Computed example of a mutant assay.
Amino acid sequence: MASTIAPISLFLLLLTLFSQTHFSSSFRVLRLNSGRPFTPILSSISDVHDLLPKYGLPKGLLPNNVQSYSLSDDGSFEVELRSPCYVYFDRYVYYNKKITGKLSYGSVSDVTGIQAKKLFLWVSVTKIHTDEGSDSIRFYVGSLSEDLPASKFENVPDCKSKACKSTNPESI
């Protein structure tokens, strides 16, 4: 009887060690829309700008003043900037101090904390999407969208404390 308990105990010990190692692993597997597995991603990447290309997005989607970020297993994320700021692409974009959303391969949905100036109005960006091999990035404002060249987002942009003298999106 003692001889059967030892192998079972050893098996349970190894199973426990393996499961703790497996769950504390820093790798995460993503699935593309087709259901195919994507390459493992290190969740311990310290700079969010280095993480974005792993999800098929350019690193210049976020400004250079990121203080911290967190990413959940379901893709929910929160980015905290040192301060709110403006970046100019084809138009001014305002980044709030806190940006949230849901990250999946090639897409950011449920975005909060990013606004773009369209004519005289500041409109909230709700989704960002790119297709593999595409030369453009699609930005959604509700059900409306606009494509911008992906080349505009290759480099991490500098934050500016002011966009112009006229309008602050938080005051609207």
Results as ranks from 00 to 15, higher is better:
E170Y: 04
Y92C: 11
I172H: 11
D147E: 15
Y94E: 05
D74V: 05
H22K: 13
A150S: 13
S134H: 10
L30W: 07
S166Q: 08
S19R: 04
R82M: 12
T21S: 15
L17K: 01
A116L: 07
K152P: 00
S166T: 10
L144G: 01
S145I: 03
P63F: 07
S19F: 07
G56E: 10
S3F: 13
S26P: 10
K127L: 00
I8S: 01
F18V: 05
I41P: 04
V108T: 00
A163L: 02
K160M: 14
L17R: 01
Q20Y: 13
S136F: 08
F38E: 08
L103F: 05
S166V: 06
D135E: 09
E80V: 15
P37A: 10
P149S: 14
R31F: 13
F11S: 05
E132K: 10
D131Q: 13
S19M: 12
K97S: 10
R36A: 14
L52P: 06
R138S: 15
Y86C: 05
G101D: 03
P84E: 13
W122P: 05
A163M: 10
G35T: 07
K117F: 00
D135R: 15
D90S: 07
L121H: 07
I8L: 15
F11L: 14
K102R: 13
Q20C: 12
S3D: 06
C164K: 10
Q67D: 14
N65V: 10
F18E: 01
S145A: 11
Y88Q: 06
N65C: 14
L148W: 14
Q20G: 04
F23S: 11
V123Y: 01
D131S: 15
L61P: 11
V87D: 04
P58V: 05
S72I: 02
F139S: 00
T4K: 13
V79P: 03
K54H: 05
L52Y: 03
D47L: 12
L15D: 01
F38A: 07
S104L: 12
S76M: 05
F77I: 02
C159Y: 05
V29M: 05
S19Q: 09
S134C: 09
F23W: 08
D131P: 00
F153C: 03
S25A: 10
F18W: 14
P58M: 08
P149T: 07
T167D: 07
P58R: 08
G101N: 00
M1S: 05
Y95V: 04
G106A: 11
I5T: 05
L103A: 08
T21K: 15
T100H: 02
L57V: 04
L81Y: 08
L71R: 05
